[in-house]
Amino acid sequence: MSAPAPYLTVRNLTKHFAPTAFSRGPVVKALQDISFDIPRGQVVGLVGESGSGKTTVGRSVLRLIEPTSGEIRFDGKDIVKLGAGDLRRQRRNMQYIFQDPFASLSPRMTIGQILTEGLDIQRIGNRAERRARAEKALAAVELPVDAYHRYAHEFSGGQRQRIGIARALTLEPEFIVADEPVSALDVSIQAQVINLLRDLQLRLGLTMLFISHDLAVVEYICDTVIVLYLGRIMEIAPAASLYARPQHPYTQALLSAIPSPDPAKRSKRQILKGDIPSPANPPSGCVFRTRCPYAIEACAGVVPELRETEAGHLKACIRDDIPA
């Protein structure tokens, strides 16, 4: 059986933030040569520490910020080359769920206005049809229809995030970037929202890039996982393979931090030395080498390429003798 065709294809994505008149300093190399695929109907997780570039990937993929270079194809169409009008039409098929459910909803707009704003911009339907779509989205995220006339401050954090999800659904997109969608919520609410997202993804056949620092959540919801560090990919693998046999030292350190209630399944915690370097002055060669317990002299002179070590499992490391 052949693998599903990629719905999203990213090749050599690079994003540099140059200094401006209001922000002097060196060029910030946020992303360097990022390449990956997301098959139609699958959820791909993007994980890494704060400052690794996860949100920059998500926003670049949707052109919420402009890539410095690279290719981004949705269903074969390179959106980097689209003009403003074509890009606006393309946005019907790709939406974003923001991390902060408090800051991402306007306090001056009713929930109905928030949900129908995208439909207005895209000129989809008349007023009654737009309201019907908004009410359908509210039902999909298990909120009452009377939420349509209320304001964001009347809802809890979990309910606000459900509204944010509903806003993404009103345009009936095929692709969604979920950027840390539960990190701002109480632990008791996180599971409810994650289960909702998983149910919607399966029921609607959505393709999704799921950004998170919580590897336990990623294991539950994602088919494939991409591990990012300082703007470069360290490892890509099916979720089952990555969690069972992590091959990159950075991935091993991240997974060792996942708490487990079963003492027999707890791995020895691997504490990374130092802090993540500045993307304005990344290390030469392998960007992880300054914190890697297995770094050798050659790591300073070679930028490791992603190479397949087993079917569907890729890592960016020049060493083959890293213990599992």
Rank of each mutant, 00 (worst) to 15 (best):
F155L: 03
I189M: 02
L202H: 12
F155C: 00
R150S: 06
Q190I: 00
F210V: 00
Q190M: 09
I189V: 15
L209F: 15
N195C: 07
S188N: 02
H153C: 03
D199T: 14
P181Q: 12
I211P: 14
Q192G: 02
M208Q: 03
I163P: 03
R167Q: 14
Y151I: 12
F210D: 13
R198Y: 05
Q190P: 07
I194L: 15
E180H: 05
A178M: 14
H149K: 07
E180S: 08
S156L: 09
L206T: 11
G164W: 11
A166F: 02
Q192M: 04
V177I: 15
H149L: 03
A168G: 03
I176F: 00
H149R: 12
S183V: 13
I194G: 01
I165S: 09
D186R: 00
D186K: 06
I165A: 05
S188D: 05
A184R: 14
E154D: 06
Q190Y: 11
I163C: 05
I211G: 11
D179I: 01
S188E: 05
G158K: 08
L185C: 09
Q192W: 00
I194M: 09
L206C: 06
V187Q: 01
R162S: 12
D186N: 01
M208H: 08
M208T: 10
L185P: 06
A184V: 12
S183P: 05
L204W: 02
R162C: 05
L209M: 15
G157H: 03
